[in-house]
């Protein structure tokens, strides 16, 4: 694990860009400090020897095999989906058929 104190403002800006967050300079300062202190704290995990340990990505693997056998997915049958009009009602900008967004391609 890398030395956590070394996280720079540019690193925080990079992570914010990856997450599509436009942070203000004040947010970069404050949230960057919080990120630094959290990374310092989670470094405690280095104390645990996990060399021979498989990651547990999902707890269902602990009990699903014994309880339910192999089939965990439902049959691939088409079902009714939400009505387009209902979905479009919840969107900030639509033409009734498509979601509208700022222009992507300049002519």
């Amino acid at each position: 694990m890398r030395e956590q104190g070394s996280i720079t403002r540019a690193d925080v800006e990079h992570v914010a860009a990856l997450a599509s967050l436009a942070l203000t300079p004040e947010e970069l300062e404050r949230l960057g400090g919080d990120l630094r202190s959290m990374l310092g704290y989670v470094a405690e995990l280095e104390e645990v020897d996990t060399q021979a340990i498989a990651p547990l990505v999902h707890v269902s693997e602990l009990f699903r095999s014994q309880a339910e056998g192999a089939g965990t997915l439902r049959a691939d049958e088409p079902l009714a989906s939400l009505l387009r009009a209902v979905v479009m009602d919840g969107a900030p900008a639509t033409d009734g058929t498509f979601f509208k967004v700022p222009k992507v391609i300049e002519r």
């Binding site: 997450a19 599509s20 967050l21 436009a22 947010e27 949230l31 700022p102």
Partner: peptide, 23 residues
């Protein structure tokens, strides 16, 4: 479009949500 994503998320999310997304 990318500016809309960023500004929506910056204006729409509170500090704790941003903190956790960053981590």
């Amino acid at each position: 479009l990318s500016g809309m994503y960023r500004e929506t998320r910056d204006g729409g999310f509170g500090a704790e949500v941003k903190r956790r997304i960053l981590l």
